[in-house]
């Protein structure tokens, strides 16, 4: 069993004129393989910041706290090393890269985890690729296109899940994988994630809406507000939020948090 721990994590970003702003104000979270966690919360509370910081995006500066993978701090590791240690982030806005085909990129990503004298064979790669393409209802032609270039929003999200299935990370962070998806695409993406469920896989799903959690049922739900996790519970917590809204929970907890996006 693998474990990902976030301990009293404080993160700030640089803004204009050398100003900094603290976004995460002491996040604590422990997850194990075999578990699916969901993080919900209103806009601007730091959900994406948490996932980007765990992955190692250099725009986010950790000022306090730690992130441990199987007890080892990963804060000093560059993003590619964290990925090879088993972390994966399905991004909200995947980059487009001309001149590099999807298939070539996937092979490079898989091979980056393997020793140089044991790279994946073309046959094994194609077999695995075909299996996952059909699971995600994607055409083969997608893999010969340049990476995300000219992909629709939905195609990009499917492509993120295709990478997840091909790379098989230990922990996957899914950042608003449901945004911009219609109900059919949402089902396909969920099917992909659910196929990964098992003892050797854990996932942290970031979402605004409870809807996704009907398809990927979480073991634990966390609610984030103003840079902290304010409440954790089981799948029912998400349903309760859906009916009562974040304001209801805020008032119940007696928090002094502004929920209007524009004021953040």
């Amino acid at each position: 069993m693998a474990t990902l721990e976030v301990k009293d994590l404080h993160v700030e970003i640089k803004e204009e004129k050398d100003q900094t702003r603290e976004i995460l104000k002491g996040v604590n979270l422990t997850m194990n393989t075999g578990e699916i966690h969901a993080i919900m919360g209103p806009n601007g509370t730091g959900k994406s910041t948490l996932s980007q910081t765990i992955m190692g995006n250099s725009a986010y500066h950790v000022t306090k706290g730690d992130i441990l993978l199987n007890g080892e701090s990963i804060l000093g590791m560059p993003v590619d090393e964290r990925a090879r240690k088993g972390l994966f982030l399905a991004m909200q806005y995947p980059a487009e890269i001309q001149g590099v085909t999807n298939a070539e990129f996937l092979r490079a990503a898989i091979n980056s985890r393997r020793p140089e004298d044991d790279q994946i064979s073309v046959m094994d790669f194609l077999k695995e690729l075909d299996k996952n393409l059909s699971l995600l209802d994607m055409s083969e032609e997608m893999t010969e296109r340049y990476l995300n270039e000219g992909f629709s929003g939905g195609e990009k999200k499917r492509n993120e899940i295709l990478q997840l299935l091909m790379i098989k990370p230990t922990f996957a962070l899914l950042d608003e994988i449901d945004s911009g998806l219609d109900i059919d695409a949402l089902q396909v993406v969920s099917k992909g994630v659910n196929s990964m469920r098992g003892d050797n896989f854990g996932s942290l799903i970031i979402t605004h809406y409870q809807r996704l959690l009907n398809y990927i049922v979480p073991d634990v739900v966390h609610v984030m507000m103003d840079g902290r996790i304010v409440k954790s519970g089981d799948a029912d917590l998400a349903k309760k939020l859906e009916s009562e809204g974040y304001a209801g929970l805020r008032d119940e907890l007696g928090l002094d948090v502004d929920l209007v996006d524009d004021n953040r």
Partner: peptide, 20 residues
């Protein structure tokens, strides 16, 4: 960042971006 987040090391990632 995107390429490296999939485990690809910085030098290969740079070459892929340059190829593009």
């Amino acid at each position: 960042y995107y390429l490296m987040s999939r485990g690809i090391d910085k030098k290969l990632a740079q070459r892929l971006v340059i190829r593009g």
